[in-house]
Amino acid sequence: MQNPYLPYPVRISEIITETEDRNLKTFKYVFIDPEDEEKFDYQAGQFAELSIAGKGEIPIGIASSPVEKGFLKFTVNKVGLVSTHLHNMKVGDVMGIRGPLGNWYPWDIMEGKNVVIIGGGFAFTTLRSSIVYMLANRDRFKEIHVIYGARTPGMLLYVDELKEWEKRDDIHMHITVDATDDPDWKYNKGFVPTITDQKAPPGTDDTYAIICGPPIMIKFTQPVLEKLDYAHDHIIMSLENRMKCGIGICGHCNIGRHFVCKDGPVFTLNQLNNMPKEY
């Protein structure tokens, strides 16, 4: 019997401060035992528990993509006990990772379809993983749209990659900020729901939307997608509930009979309509 609570030992190989408020950092990890990397076989949309001895564990979406080998990447917002400690750690430090956990975006269903990615704030992590995955398998998808917003230009994640994607003609990028007085800002201005209204393709049987962002963004984007004729089973979301075990045992993250950690974190709006609003 394998102990599902035992993390793989990893070493921090790189730390990138992502945002101007310095509250978001991306941590790159390498497995100390290369065999563990093989066991850690994941899909875009899954998460893992970052484990720091003496502090505890936090569930964090996997920001690296299954098509990127040799490392894992996570972008962590400084919030409380564990995430603050992590922000103070250095390259070379040893910690643990447990996973991959949860389900993933429905890649089998979305194959051959249009995919619209809608992200806000720092909830862009598994969306980055998804974009990198789709671009590496570009012929398996039709049109790809990305609507991604942050408060200010300095709060956008993965800026270098965003610029690269902007240059490509096989992905429609719609980057936006709530407000900026930067005269050189050449992308959109406005909230994510507004930009979605303007730029998202109409909903069809062949078009899926994946939304991740703060509750307020989701609340106002949902009616826009409905107006654009997206069916509820074509709107895909990822939830964040308080978690401990991450494997459906400790009971913390339930919504009705479902565990967000094991049956989720990815649900369609159609599924969520029939679940208590406990997220």
Partner: peptide
């Protein structure tokens, strides 16, 4: 249902 906590005393600890 259970919670998981780390407890450290000096340099040693338990989860």
């Amino acid at each position: 249902c259970f919670d998981v906590q780390d407890e450290t005393c000096g340099n040693c600890g338990i989860r």
